[in-house]
Design a protein around this nucleic acid. Structure first.
Length: 489
RNA sequence: GCCGCCCUAGCUCAGUUGGUUAGAGCGCCAGAUUGUGGCUCUGGAGGUCUCCCGUUCGAUCCGGGAGGGCGGUACCA
């Protein structure tokens, strides 16, 4: 493929993608809308650097054998390991710890930007992607969780998700912890295995999860996943717990109380959920927007209390036209121990984050494609290399009227220039040839109109003769004519 | 990480039971149309058939290895 072996192959690294105007514009629109909502709720923007010292990132601390496990890490010239951030929460914890003395507390901030994960990319999964994240640090009140949830609902709808098409499902880690303590599960590893098993409920169903809670499960490829090793009775209790969600928040709470009530930690979790329910009600968030669902886990070790997940409810079609579940578009929860890693003092915190391009695909699936096709500028045809200054003067005039414009800067003939303008989806081409310069006129060609008429004309001679959408007008009327074309489109 | 499938033009893919000039469609460039985007027609550019080693008189094709891609599974802050 490459004739010269020394020549580099033009390709992006695996898991990294180039995004063109269409996607960039759509994602910017999402970020602008969500930022507006978050600021209205009193969250301030914060930007931190792409790199953090590896020890600040926590458990993915690279060692000499596997310096890049999970993250992109490198050694600074002072030998310290640093790594690209893999989310926006860890840098926030570091920032909050570093500036705790001077920060207004509780500290409310939102942030967005690229994060990097050094792992196997998959469909819709990349090694670099943009996250948007809002957190409150320094408030242990369940109302802080409720506020984050209500704000997420508003943010997702402001970004363009049709009202009610996303549901925030809320759970509390303390419930499952209480349940497991009651069942005699004390080992941390075993608890994690239980969480992982429950997390797979929507994909594997109760039977698959039952296997994972017990001895383990062999999948279709023959790979065996070791189970949590619970006895049958304990496994059934866990399954009964996960099935307790349904209906409005109050009745779910009542059912959950039956299953986990009694243990100290379970009761604490129940009380927190009750407070969240009350706050959400006050914030006007009904059960069709946020509900309790005991099967939500969010796999993360660091969550200590409430956890939540935003799920897209719309049934969407994949490329083959098959209905598919879009699933989770974001999530979050309470992590009271993250800042303590730096300060030694337990600092309550809660937050929500979502992947921006994932939300963009969700919007597309919901039929709210903000992107449309990115329109090109008005193209001023470059006729004669010696008259470039005249063309630039025309382009300048168009820009001054607030209309994007450019002079064609290639070296091809007029035909290719028209083709260029067509491909850029330009609304119009402006022709200022010798005739026009002599007469003090300009020729404006409405390319949109031509695009419509093209389908009705079969014969090329006729097509050329018609010059669809083309008019020659006095130079002084140029911008007004362009404005009419733009307004019509 | 583990399992499976795949790798021929920019893209999607034919093809050669191992034999001399490897094809198509789309895309790209140009001409028909000397100042005009679409359609049509004509012409053109573009390939060490992923790489290395082996078998063979001869390998894009067979065997081994490596790399890359895809799918599943595990992990997922």
């Amino acid at each position: 493929m490459t004739s010269d072996p020394n020549r580099p192959e033009a390709r992006a690294p695996r898991g990294f993608i180039d995004r063109r105007a269409r996607d960039v514009v759509a994602e910017r629109a999402i970020l602008a809308a969500v930022s507006g909502v978050y600021e209205r709720w009193g969250f301030e923007p914060l930007e931190t650097g792409a790199f953090e010292y590896a020890d600040a990132l926590g458990k993915f601390l690279p060692d000499a054998d596997r310096p890049n496990e999970g993250v992109f890490a490198l050694q600074d010239d002072d030998e310290q390991w640093m790594a690209l951030r893999y989310d926006l929460t860890a840098p926030l914890a570091r920032f909050a710890a570093q500036n705790w003395e001077t920060l207004p507390k509780p500290f409310r901030r939102y942030a967005f930007g690229p994060v990097w994960r050094n792992e196997k990319p998959g469909p819709g999964r990349f090694r670099e992607f943009v996250q948007c994240d809002a957190d409150t640090v320094g408030s242990a009140r369940p109302e802080a969780d409720a506020e984050i949830i209500a704000m997420a609902v508003e943010g997702l709808e402001a970004a363009g998700l049709p009202a009610g098409s996303a549901l925030i499902k809320i759970n509390n880690r303390k419930l499952l912890n209480g349940l497991m303590s009651a069942a005699g599960v004390a080992d941390e590893g075993q608890k994690l295995a239980v969480l992982r098993a429950v997390d797979k409920l929507d994909r594997l169903g109760p039977d698959g999860v039952r296997l994972l809670l017990g001895e383990g499960r062999k999948d279709e490829s023959g790979d065996f996943t070791k189970g949590a090793g619970l006895n049958a009775a304990a496994a059934e209790r866990v399954l009964a717990f996960t099935a307790a969600g349904a209906g409005d928040r109050a009745s779910t709470l009542a059912k959950l109380a039956d299953v986990v009530g009694g243990s100290a930690e379970g009761d604490e979790g129940l009380a927190e959920l009750a407070a969240i329910d009350a706050a959400l009600t006050g914030l006007g968030v009904a059960a069709d927007r946020a509900t309790f669902d005991p099967s939500v886990v969010r796999g993360l070790e660091y969550y200590t209390g409430a956890v939540f997940e935003a799920e897209l409810l719309l049934s969407t079609l994949d490329e083959k036209g098959q209905p598919m579940r879009f699933g989770s578009i974001g999530g979050g929860g309470r992590y009271d121990d993250l800042v303590a890693r730096f300060t030694g003092e337990r600092t309550p915190a809660t937050g929500f984050s979502f992947g921006v391009s994932r939300l963009a695909s969700a919007l597309k699936a919901a039929g709210r494609d903000l992107a449309k096709a990115a329109r090109g500028p008005v193209v001023v045809i470059a006729f004669d290399q010696t008259r470039m200054a005249d063309y630039f003067a025309v382009a300048r005039e168009i820009r001054a009227a607030g209309i994007p414009a450019e002079v064609y800067l290639g070296s091809s003939g007029m035909k290719a220039q028209m083709k260029y303008a067509d491909r850029r989806l330009s609304p119009a081409a402006v022709i200022v040839g010798e005739d026009e310069l002599a007469a003090g006129t300009v020729t404006v060609k409405d390319l949109d109109l031509g695009r419509v008429l093209a389908s009705k004309v079969a014969d090329n001679a006729e097509w050329r003769e018609q010059r669809p959408g083309q008019q020659t007008i006095p130079r002084g009327e140029l911008t007004a004519a362009l404005r009419r074309i733009l307004d019509a489109g």
